[in-house]
Design a protein around this nucleic acid. Structure first.
Lengths: 261, 261
DNA sequence: GAGTGGTCTAGACCACTAT
DNA sequence: TAGTGGTCTAGACCACTCC
């Protein structure tokens, strides 16, 4: 018992899943049954299942059971250049296209506004990112994106009010936000910068995304730049890690990491 | 008790940590003491501490205790363009510069080869990524990168043997691998593609990286392309999520996600 | 109403660290 | 040797789903 009982059970189940002895979509035996099968207590089995869930091999649902396979495929989110032959949801960089992308993937998308979009005063971080003064008004959207009744991610986004304030009163439908920006203000988005970290979710994130305490999330801070050298969006995104693959394609212009300090 | 006792305790401790009532670096009371303090069982306290650990607010050490604050700062890993005013470890895209970058950050770097570098037969995935035939020989390196005695990441990397095979017998020191490639074979690396997912670690990963079962990792698959339209590296990287921030900067050339199917 | 996962309890033994 | 976190046990109650 090198690694502990929970680990042993996880390994045993992992092998059965990998070898497709237990097929994808199948329900596992109940925690109580597995405990009996392995002559151990239920808490230990739960530990094993938590491990497999964290690895993305199984999904667990209260009152229903544990099932082999992720709830669904991870979504590809690509950045920068084209990516050819993959099912691609290029939506992370394209405000407003979550719905379209999900429909293209055959899912039932849904967007839930957790707050009424409104004008709020910029705090220190938002002011710094949007290059405005603290306290300046910004247009805020706070929403939850869902597909097939499964929460995918939380997006808290801020936009300069002089450019976007009128969105309080007009409705652009599902037209991409930045397409509207160009048509309305002749400003083009040119590039984006993202900082990405992975961690476990906080309680409020867990609650909104309906994930278990041991499920990791990916937190992305994004700023979007324009051809007039002015940021037009700062967004804080919390994505359910198990549902995403992030794809990046970037140029290498130098191999020498040295920089002037 | 809306969210459960463990959540309540985590919230209580979280607040004390955030408000600096408990200062960074301080040891928390023992799990048994906290259990008594909150009139609960030790398992519930452990659940609370697991939550805080996953969020990166505390660190736990067997036989020693739980301490406020992450082990160290997250490292910035940037991609693509320059990023100006940040402490930047641009090393992920630069084979061979982990040591230099860590030294620049004032850390004590160390690289541990888990296997002797060798020529192995390419499996299906490697062959596909490097655009060679299955069974062709590839140069394999499998190593663990450590800083200040703390494992940072595992790298399993493969290179075409016709270009890199001679590295079995010669030693290029700490010269970046791709700089050597250009000098030796006049081949320049031009861009890289990365797929990134976050999940919990598998047992073997946990063991090598010395992290707890609930600690998330970031798995990156990377292929490096060259000016002769030929991939020269395929790497599978497992990074301890708590130690990294990934930074990407990319152009937006279109806002329309539509593509020909 | 039977069965499920989510949570909690009050113990226990272990390997390891610090003194 | 006393104290720590890591692991495990054998129960328990709850809210919920499915039949």
């Amino acid at each position: 018992m090198e690694l502990g009982k929970a680990e042993d059970i996880a390994q045993s189940l992992r092998q059965k899943i990998m070898s497709e002895e237990i097929q994808s979509g199948t329900r596992l035996n109940s925690e109580r049954d597995i405990a009996e099968e392995y002559h151990t207590s239920r808490m230990t089995v739960r530990r094993a299942l938590e491990i497999l869930e964290g690895e993305g091999l199984i999904t667990r649902h209260p009152s229903r059971g544990s099932f082999v396979g992720g709830t669904r495929e991870r979504i590809l989110v690509d950045k920068g250049r084209e990516i050819s032959n993959a099912v691609t949801a290029s939506e992370l960089r394209l405000s407003g296209s979550f719905i379209k992308d999900m429909e293209r993937l055959g899912r039932k998308p849904q967007v839930q506004f957790l707050e009424q979009p409104s004008l709020v005063a910029a705090d220190t971080q938002i002011a710094e990112q949007l290059k405005i003064k603290e306290g300046d008004l910004v247009f805020k959207r706070y929403r939850l994106q869902i597909a097939d009744n499964l929460p995918y991610r939380l997006i808290e986004s801020y936009y300069p009010s002089d450019l976007f304030g009128e969105l309080l009163t007009i409705n652009i439908g599902d037209k991409p936000l930045f397409q509207w920006l160009q048509e309305r203000h002749k400003i083009k988005v040119t590039h984006a910068k993202e900082n990405l970290i992975a961690r476990l979710a906080t309680p409020s994130e867990r609650q909104l995304l309906k994930i278990s305490p041991s499920a990791p999330i990916v937190a992305v801070d994004r700023t979007v730049q324009t051809n007039v050298n002015r940021p037009v969006e700062f967004a804080h995104i919390i994505a359910v890690a198990a549902l995403y693959i992030f794809t990046y394609d970037y140029d290498i212009t130098e191999w020498n990491g040295e920089k002037k300090a």
